[in-house]
Nucleic acid binder design. Structure first.
Lengths: 117, 117
DNA sequence: AAAATAGATCAATGAGAGTTGATGCATCAA
DNA sequence: TTGATGCATCAACTCTCATTGATCTATTTT
């Protein structure tokens, strides 16, 4: 079996609850790479086989594979095996969880500072 | 004057419009650092003077200054000068823009892949 | 005017993360 | 069973980026 069945820490039902800082940071970090963001954007339009991604993005195979792993470990992607091919899809729950986490972040940012002098 | 009056590309009214990929990536990258995320979380609770941040986070001055600049350049922070002190606050618009951008991202992610064989 | 404080910036160092090419392991076709 | 294809993984290299300590400027205090 080429695809590990065990779920990353950040995956699954965990994302239905409020995100911990570490989890949020892991998602942000995974998204913050230009190449990975391209991958995410393509997968945001629908599931893709690795070979399609390779063509669509014009990437070296090992390079793409590296970044897919990073995204999967962060809980952003899910892989599905079908014979010789592996299909990846974006986990909308992960995006949603991050969205909500960001929403809470700025809650009190208009509170003025106590003068420092 | 110690604080540059010119706005970063990603700041201001730009964030009221849909974010470009590059802008979104800049925000994500700025947020993806553990230390910067701490700063953001503190500023999410209200405006702070640099010296308060230094104390509250226990950081070396130049280190904090470096990260504040990164966050400001990304459009996430705004600085206000008052005499000898400089107060930073979180720009809720930037967070909001990123939230919306993320929302659009996963729009079509349930579209199945065309079988690859 | 001189000393002290707040904060930015710079040069040098170090650590982490991405890239590249090779190799390995499945799966499918012949 | 042999060869070809899809994909993951590994080791070596590179490069980006954060850290550190020093220096510089502006502001305030004495």
């Amino acid at each position: 079996m080429r695809v590990d069945a065990s779920r990353p820490v950040s995956a699954g039902c965990v994302l239905d609850h409020p995100l911990a800082h570490e989890q949020a940071r892991a998602l942000l970090k995974a998204l913050a790479d230009p190449l990975r963001l391209q991958v995410i954007e393509v997968l945001g339009r629908g599931e893709r086989c690795v070979c399609e991604l390779t063509d669509e993005l014009g990437l070296a195979q090992s390079k793409l594979s590296f970044h897919l792993k990073v995204l999967k470990d962060a809980g952003l992607l899910e892989a599905r095996e079908d014979g010789r091919w592996i299909y990846y899809r974006l986990r909308a729950e992960a995006i949603g969880a991050l969205q909500r986490w960001l929403g809470d972040l700025a809650a009190g940012c208009d509170t003025p500072a106590s003068p420092c002098g």
